[in-house]
């Protein structure tokens, strides 16, 4: 095995670990919002590591750029979707009226902490 293969093995294994951790978070965290944390953060890092691990196996720079593009789009999509899902959740629960000034909780009235 070459050094490139070892890099691939290490980075992809670590990437898979983060996907497993993210999945554990989805299963174990108590509410939808907490699960979104696991979904966005752990999986983004896992995908980044897998992309990093695959890069040394690719034939040319264009393919590596394409892999980077895939990762970038996935991260942007995950960040956007997580925000939209959380926002939709707040509205569904009636904690925030559509575009209103309504409080998320009574804690807000006391100041910064929520």
């Amino acid at each position: 095995m070459t050094i490139a293969d070892w890099v691939t093995l290490a980075a992809c294994s670590l990437g898979v670990f983060f996907f497993i951790a993210g999945t554990a978070g989805i299963l174990r965290f108590p509410d939808a919002y907490s699960r979104l944390h696991a979904l966005t953060k752990a999986d983004n890092l896992g995908l980044g590591l897998i992309a990093l691990g695959l890069a040394p196996q690719l034939p040319d720079g264009w393919s590596i750029a394409k892999l980077a593009l895939v990762w970038l789009l996935a991260v942007l999509a995950a960040a956007t979707v997580a925000q939209l899902a959380a926002r939709a959740g707040l509205r569904l629960e009636g904690r925030v009226a559509h575009g209103s000034e309504a409080a998320v909780s009574d804690r807000e009235a006391r100041g910064q902490r929520g």
């Binding site: 670990f17 983060f18 951790a21 978070g25 174990r28 696991a38 953060k41 752990a42 890092l45 896992g46």
Partner: peptide, 9 residues
């Protein structure tokens, strides 16, 4: 962020 949430999960 990834390490933090993985550890907690």
């Amino acid at each position: 962020g990834g390490f933090d949430v993985a550890w907690r999960a």
